[in-house]
Amino acid sequence: MSAANPAQRAAASPQAPYPILELIKLHKRFGDHVVLEAVDLRIEPGELVCVIGPSGSGKSTMLRLCNQLERACGGQVIFDGQDLTSSLVSIDRVRRQIGMVFQQFNLYPHLRALGNVTLALKRVAGLPRREAQAVALDALERVGMREHANAWPSTLSGGQQQRVAIARAIAMSPKIVLFDEPTSALDPTLVGSVLAVMRRLREEGMTMLVVTHEMQFARAVADRVVFMADGKVIEQGPPEQLFTSPRDPRTAAFISGESN
């Protein structure tokens, strides 16, 4: 393998002394509408954290604050020791180390699968074409899409498109990947293939923050589950504890509602 596998690198490096991502007292309003209120969250390297909660509770907004697609109204986003809310940080340099996977895939329709993955490698990481292609093919291999490298996005199924989108995110060797309901736009039959890819990334040691409605997945794979409601983190803990003996009645209500 020509390019260093980021997961192996992460696994090989000693535990970092600080969390890879930390949200401190994060506030967000849209106009008068308060969407996030004093949200605190720490993600350690190598962790897979799932965020669950009712619709409109601010999960997507929190995720988009992590890579500054939205601007916070108060509080801090510390990534790898830097405060991203500071105007001194060059956000484009930081974002190349944070992968993002969207509910609607957002593949570039004018580029083939391979082109989708190589674009940022060439334009942001500055790799020459051949090297970018080698890295991209490797990433496509890891999501099981190598044989579709030359396919146009519109000819792929939703599950295949989402796997290409994941390859696009991990090809940049990010320190963390953010997932916003990666399986919500998929046919039920296609959900499994995407979740399998995410499981595999977890085994490789990739740090992931996943907003999801897939309770089974959260329970089986997450290191920690965070429950949000009304713009606040209500409760968090290991999946077994949170799913079997939630401390907050709202968590219990949400979990019993979802499992029906």
Binding site: L69, V94, R95, R123
Partner: peptide, 20 residues
């Protein structure tokens, strides 16, 4: 989403405009 995907991969405004 096209802007967001490109910007979140670290491309700047001008790069996003040109390539995506």
């Amino acid at each position: 989403g096209q802007w967001e995907a490109a910007r979140s991969s670290g491309m700047g405004f001008v790069q996003t405009l040109c390539w995506v």
